[in-house]
Computed example of a mutant assay.
Amino acid sequence: MQSQQSPTNSAALASEEAAQFYNIPILAKYIEDDTSNTTRFLVIGNKKIAPSGDDKTTFMVSANDRPGLLNQLIEPLSAHNVTMSRIESRPAKHTMWGYCFYIDIMGHQDDVKVQKALNEIHNRASLLKILGSYPQARY
């Protein structure tokens, strides 16, 4: 597989094996602060990716704290038969003791069932940001 690198506007944090596989130069080695860590890396860009048929979508959601908040935010996924594959919480910057949830789901943001679920979540949240849809990684 050939690399599609553009040295003037692209960079990656990746393993030495990935650099060899994609035939890309290594600019710096051993930049980690913990040699035993494992990290999930993403390709970030400003272009929308077309559905591949085997996609994931990542979004961020937040709402004012209330009983059952998380359940209310993710219930539309189940209602529309969308599988959640990952959820993480991070402290919100806009409110003390508030949280943003970063969620990965199976499917592309253009899929009808994903659109319906995200629309319902949007109606329940104070913030919903779709970070993107992308083909699932193959190991």
Results as ranks from 00 to 15, higher is better:
18 A>D: 13
52 S>A: 00
50 A>K: 09
89 S>Y: 12
72 Q>T: 10
134 Y>R: 03
60 M>G: 08
63 A>M: 02
64 N>P: 01
118 L>V: 08
7 P>K: 06
95 T>L: 05
48 K>P: 05
48 K>F: 01
6 S>N: 08
102 Y>I: 13
103 I>R: 00
128 L>D: 04
6 S>Y: 09
56 K>I: 14
118 L>Y: 02
20 Q>R: 15
50 A>Y: 03
120 E>C: 02
104 D>I: 05
100 C>G: 03
66 R>A: 13
41 F>W: 08
17 E>F: 11
27 L>Y: 14
61 V>Q: 05
135 P>S: 06
88 E>C: 08
63 A>I: 04
25 P>C: 03
6 S>P: 04
47 K>D: 09
124 R>G: 00
86 R>P: 07
62 S>W: 05
8 T>G: 00
18 A>E: 08
70 L>D: 01
23 N>P: 00
95 T>H: 03
116 K>C: 01
21 F>G: 01
9 N>C: 11
111 D>T: 07
43 V>K: 15
2 Q>T: 14
59 F>I: 11
102 Y>T: 10
35 T>P: 09
94 H>L: 15
54 D>Q: 06
36 S>D: 12
75 E>H: 02
67 P>T: 09
49 I>P: 07
27 L>K: 14
127 L>A: 09
68 G>C: 00
2 Q>C: 06
83 T>A: 06
119 N>I: 04
